[in-house]
Design a protein around this nucleic acid. Sequence first.
DNA 1: ACTAGATGTAAACGTTTGCTGACTTAGCCA
DNA 2: TGGCTAAGTCAGCAAACGTTTACATCTAGT
Lengths: 210, 210
Amino acid sequence: MTAEPPVPTTGDTADEPAQRRRRDAAETRQLLLDAARQRFARDGYAATTVRDIADDAGVNVALISRYFTSKEGLFEACLRAAGDELGRTTGQTPADRVPEAIARHIAGLGAAGLSSQLALLLRSSGDAQADEIRRGVLVRSSEQLAAARGWRPGEPDSHQLLLRAQMALAAGIGVAVLRSSIRLEPLSSATEHDLVGPLRDLVDALLPPH
Amino acid sequence: MTAEPPVPTTGDTADEPAQRRRRDAAETRQLLLDAARQRFARDGYAATTVRDIADDAGVNVALISRYFTSKEGLFEACLRAAGDELGRTTGQTPADRVPEAIARHIAGLGAAGLSSQLALLLRSSGDAQADEIRRGVLVRSSEQLAAARGWRPGEPDSHQLLLRAQMALAAGIGVAVLRSSIRLEPLSSATEHDLVGPLRDLVDALLPPH
DNA sequence: ACTAGATGTAAACGTTTGCTGACTTAGCCA
DNA sequence: TGGCTAAGTCAGCAAACGTTTACATCTAGT
């Protein structure tokens, strides 16, 4: 095993280093994470090479092994980051405005933005642990969405609600991928404003506000 | 491109073992096509190796090069087959019953069935020509769907209709992938009957029958 | 200023990948 | 039956892959 990624004891958790230190483990880690997220979301796990990621980040290949143990470890880290961000976004949103939040997620700045976080959830990895993390993120998100429309865990007659929430989530992810990865026109160049209406219709049809 | 393998006049249109001839180019080709479609749809293009496909088909690896020139050629053949099948299905369907047709497509027999054809459309390949074929299939399908709801090419005010049709298609594909590849529960084990209701709601909300 | 450890680099390692060329075998017709 | 061609096999190549190893350089604490 590789040793724990050394959590840098640089005390600057809050204030920003106006210029990066020549050697900064935390920043290097983050550079790799950002580059990997974009690559994985756009090209998929297997099609992305560690050398691609390292080059994008402007960093040596070996540092991927150092900081994330392996390519799979890096993918899992991306998945966790995407899950956290997704949960944070929808968690802060009032239940009845979730569609808009999702629309903003999907529309947000193509490759660089949050849209790629959603697309990431659809990219296969072949790794069992990564698959489990992804499933967990999806389950949590769909339950959050279903709960906003009256679903409660264990109530058998609200089973349909969870199913419908998962379909809404699937729709959002599908749109994100068709936009960011496949670049289907006119969907790909539609603005947030173009998307939010249809998306609201979609979510409301699947999950009527109660 | 590749020379057509002479189609032997084995009259058994229904795919029956019926004891296969020991050497049958057409059948071997089809075995490879079927195996590839499943693999590509479930694992993605890059994660699938030609040896996997050949083993699944019970056939020698070199025959992929013989019949499809290359791995990319095989992927393109899968894409074309999926496009044809999708077009045939929705083409034969009365406009107002397209949602049910899609639902049947999505629900149909998990990995082995037509569902994987839809999932295939979302799997990246990195090959420019394959991407073009995929985009073509998607554009044609979405236009077909939009036309069923009153869209006519070139009418600027029906632009929204095409966008909405693409979102409906994206939703269907997203559901297919979450079912067949990610196996998200309870979506994954939902039956056609479970899916058709929500899917009709979804399509009708995006594309109101006019 | 000195040193120990953190950070980064370069070059390879062994494996797997897609693909090929020379070969063998089965099917078919004269 | 003999033989020709389509169909299938086999071993292996070169390139690309993820990872590791041995080394160089920077930074912090004293």
